[in-house]
Structures are given as C-alpha cells and as structure tokens.
C-alpha cells in the first residue's frame, strides 16, 4: 500500500501564491494616502453590517482546539510508529552493523519531542504562552547562577537539593545551611548542573508548572519556619531572665501591696 504525500509541496505553492497575490494587489491598487488610510469612512457601516455575521461565527478558540486535537492525533500516530520501530529493533534484532534503524528511531524521537514542546509553545494564545514565559524566567534564573544574589540564594540552594534528597531532610538541611550563613560563612560555591541535563526539554511542557509550584511552596514554608525558629530562639534567650523577673514579681508583689 504505497502512498505519496504532496502536502509540503502544496503548502509551499500556496504560500508563494498568497505572497504573489499580495504583491500584485499592492501593485494594482494605488496605495492610499495616509490620511485616507487611517480614517476608514466605511468603518461604521461595516461594523453594523457585520455584527449579525459575527454572532454566527463560532468563537476564535474553536480553531485552536481543532488545531491542537489534530496535532495530538498526529503525535499519537507518530508515537505509535516509534513504538513499532522500537519493538522491531528490540524484539527482532538483525544482528548486523546496520544503524539505519537506530537512526530512524532517533529521528522520529526528535520529531515527536519537538512537535510536542514546540507545538505547545508556539500556539500564540492560551496557556501555552504563559508556560513559555514562566519557562523563560526559570531558565534565566538558572543561567545567571554565577551572579547569585543574596535573595535568590535560598531558592537555588533548594533547587540543588530537591532533586537529591527527600523533602523533610531538605527543609532541615536548609535551615542548617541558613544558620551557617548567619554565622558569617556564606556558602557561595555551589555548583549548579546545567539545566538541560536535569530536565529534558520534552518534559517541560508537562512538568514546569508543578515543579515551580513546589519550589514556591517550599521556599515559603522554609522562610516561615526559619522566622519561627528565630523568634523561638530569641524567646529562649530571654526566657531565663523573664522567669527570674516574674519570680521576683511574685515575691515582691505582696510586699509592694503591703
């Protein structure tokens, strides 16, 4: 069952013809003066006339929903193909030096991952864009690790830990580290692994959001815990004195009244 796809050639030709159409349109019609172009004297009627048609047109996001679901079906299909390739490669190895199969697997893996991440980020509206913004911030944060400032120190410290040790320990160790720092020995020589090794780009789409949430939450709790601890510590320093004073009070009260 042979097939041949002409979609790419077709799209190319369509884009070309669209471009040609615009150029010719520009050439044929005189370019109106600025004054005329800026103030459209038909605008009022145009709006009135088209208001009814606008209602009939489905909302804008319908297109992108379809677009996305179509993309997803395509990705699913490609993933199926990849599965088949893997299957073939692992279950029926040819035992020769032919690397074509591996090559094919690699290519389709790349295609899928690209399509997944790029496909989501390149949508110009909706949640995709927000995620991209967050992702960008995140990246900047990591790459500027050389010029660490005192204020994001805690965050970064946490980040290095979070991938290695359980959460409870992390909190404990964090407070220890902070204590150390307060003791006049700021811990500045932390080596951060390059971002790309920790998380593959393909995982960003689905994980960036949750990881960031977790980081925020943990930094907040750490901060409050440290504050609490500090308050407690202060209190404990003052405590013996206070008790002594209160004792004195007890002792002295009756005499005072007397």
């Amino acid at each position: 069952m042979a097939t041949r796809s002409l979609t790419e050639a077709y799209l190319l030709m369509r884009n070309n013809s669209a471009r040609n159409r615009h150029t010719y349109a520009d050439l044929n019609h005189e370019i109106p003066e600025d004054r005329v172009a800026l103030v459209n004297n038909h605008s009022a009627e145009y709006c009135d006339g088209s208001s009814s048609t606008i209602v009939a047109i489905p909302p804008d996001w319908v297109d992108s929903v379809e677009e996305i679901s179509y993309d997803i079906t395509r990705i699913q299909e490609k993933m199926k193909e990849l599965g088949v390739l893997h299957d073939k490669h692992l279950n029926r190895p040819t035992l020769d030096d032919n690397v074509e199969e591996e090559h094919a697997i690699e290519i389709s893996t790349q295609e899928i991952t690209q399509e997944k991440s790029v496909g989501i980020f390149e949508k110009d509206a909706g949640p995709g864009r927000e995620i991209k913004a967050i992702f960008d911030n995140h990246l900047n944060l990591r790459e500027d690790s050389a010029i660490m400032t005192e204020e994001n120190m805690e965050k970064i410290l946490y980040l290095t830990r979070v991938s290695q040790i359980p959460q409870v320990q992390a909190v404990d160790q964090n407070s220890q580290l902070i204590e150390q720092r307060r003791g006049g020995q700021p811990h500045r020589t932390i080596h951060l692994r390059p971002e790309r090794n920790i998380q593959r780009p393909s995982q960003y789409g689905c994980r960036t959001g949750t990881v960031l949430d977790r980081i925020d939450y943990n930094v907040e709790t750490t901060a409050t815990k440290v504050e609490e601890a500090y308050i407690n510590y202060k209190r404990s320093v003052h405590l013996p004195l206070q008790t002594f004073e209160s004792c004195l009070d007890v002792w002295l009260k009756p005499t005072k009244h007397l």
């Binding site: 097939t3 041949r4 796809s5 002409l6 979609t7 369509r14 669209a18 179509y70």
Partner: peptide, 11 residues
C-alpha cells in the same frame, strides 16, 4: 486555495 482550507494533499 486562498482561504487556506486544505490540510493534506496525498496520492
């Protein structure tokens, strides 16, 4: 296809 409605062309 000025309205760009075609998604695929195949044989």
């Amino acid at each position: 296809d000025a309205q760009e409605v075609v998604r695929e062309v195949q044989e």
